[in-house]
Simulated scan of single mutants.
Amino acid sequence: MLSIRPPTAADAGRLAEVHVRCWQEAYHGILSDGFLAALEPAGRLPLWTQLLADPPAGSLWAAYDGGTAVGFAGVRPVPSTAGVEPPAADRELWGLYLLASHHGLGLGGRLLRAALGTDAASLWVASENTRAIGFYRHFGFRADGAADLVPEWENLAEMRMVRPGQAGISG
């Protein structure tokens, strides 16, 4: 049974595994094989332990298949990015990842709706990640011209997408 719910502290280990595997799937061909091979769940576990220790209401959602986490979405207030004009939205989707084995089942859209509803928001997406860009466009996000490089991720080029609040988005 596929479901969406807020994760609990007990999910930290599995979400660390999902986080790494999703990165390896989503960024294959965008980041080097060596970079992706070096990612390990143990490196993400402190992040997930901290995130799940006392998450603000509505900030974290996970997708489950038969009780096993297979994806997640996280929202936060928009952080300031040096040299980049802030977006009009005050909420940022900092991550939405779903294992490739679960693409095409509607879980990504369900995660996005759980995390944001139809509220205005922004996000950063790898400029070469055409699948993700298409997904976000489907849900009303558009590139706003802001771009950035992430040096610690092999100078990954990112673009910002924004969405005004829209009551009619259904996806």
Results as ranks from 00 to 15, higher is better:
Cys22Asn: 07
Arg91Lys: 13
Gly109Trp: 05
Ala37Asp: 15
Arg131Ser: 11
Ala62Leu: 03
Gly145Trp: 05
Phe139Leu: 12
Ile4Arg: 04
Glu152Ala: 15
Ala82Met: 08
Gly66His: 10
Trp124Ser: 04
Tyr97Met: 07
Leu15Met: 10
Glu92His: 12
Ile30Glu: 04
Ala157Trp: 00
Leu36Arg: 03
Leu123Ala: 06
Ala126Thr: 06
Gly58Phe: 11
Gly71Asn: 08
Ser127Asn: 09
Val150Lys: 10
Gly134Gln: 05
Leu36Gly: 02
Leu107Ala: 03
Ser127Leu: 12
Glu154Arg: 06
Ser101His: 10
Ile169Glu: 10
Asp54His: 12
Val75Cys: 08
Pro87Tyr: 06
Ser170Arg: 14
Ala146Lys: 00
Gly13Pro: 01
Thr118Asp: 04
Glu25Met: 03
Pro151Cys: 05
Leu116Tyr: 01
Gln24Ser: 00
Thr130Tyr: 09
Ala146Met: 12
Asp90Arg: 14
Ala53Asp: 12
Gly71Cys: 08
Asp90Asn: 11
Gly29Cys: 11
Ala26Val: 09
Trp124Gln: 04
Glu25His: 08
Leu149Lys: 14
Arg21Tyr: 02
Ala12Thr: 02
Leu123Arg: 03
Phe139Thr: 00
Ala26Met: 08
Leu116Gly: 03
Asn129Met: 00
Pro6Asn: 06
Arg91Pro: 00
Ala114Ser: 14
Gly74Gln: 15
Leu15Ala: 07
Ala57Val: 10
His28Lys: 13
Gly29Asn: 10
Ala69His: 10
Cys22Ala: 15
Ala26Asp: 03
Ala157His: 15
Val84His: 05
Leu112His: 11
Ala16His: 01
Ala16Gln: 06
Gly117His: 06
Ser3Val: 00
Ala69Asn: 09
Pro46Trp: 12
Ser127Asp: 15
Arg21Lys: 09
Ile4Leu: 08
Asp148Val: 14
Pro7Cys: 09
Thr49Cys: 11
Arg21Ser: 10
Pro6Asp: 07
Ala63His: 03
Val150Asn: 10
Gly109Thr: 05
Arg142Thr: 14
Thr49Gly: 05
Gly83Tyr: 12
Asp119Ser: 15
Leu99Lys: 02
Arg160Pro: 05
Leu31Glu: 06
Leu39Trp: 00
Gln166Phe: 01
Ile30Tyr: 01
Gly140Leu: 02
Ser170Glu: 15
Asp119His: 11
Ala57Lys: 08
Gly145Asn: 11
Arg113Tyr: 01
Trp48Asp: 00
Ile4Pro: 02
Asn155Met: 12
Arg21His: 10
Phe35Leu: 03
Ala167Gln: 09
Ala63Tyr: 01
Leu47Ser: 09
Leu47Val: 09
Leu2Asn: 03
Gly106Glu: 05
Trp124Pro: 00
Ser127Thr: 11
Gly95His: 01
Gly145Pro: 02
Asp148Lys: 14
Glu85Met: 11
Leu116Asp: 00
Gly108Ser: 07
Leu52Met: 10
Leu99Phe: 04
Ala147Gln: 15
Gly145Cys: 08
Trp94Leu: 08
Val75Ile: 13
Leu47Arg: 13
Ala100Ile: 00
Phe139Trp: 15
Ala53Pro: 12
Gly134Arg: 14
Cys22Ile: 11
Leu149Trp: 06
Phe72Ser: 10
Trp153Val: 12
Ser3Glu: 14
Arg110Lys: 15
Gln166Ala: 13
Pro86Leu: 09
Gly104Arg: 08
Arg14Ile: 13
Arg91Val: 05
Met1Phe: 09
Glu152Gln: 14
Val84Tyr: 09
Arg110Trp: 04
Pro77Asn: 13
Gly109Leu: 08
Ala114Trp: 02
His19Thr: 03
Glu40Asn: 11
Ala143Arg: 07
Arg160Asp: 00
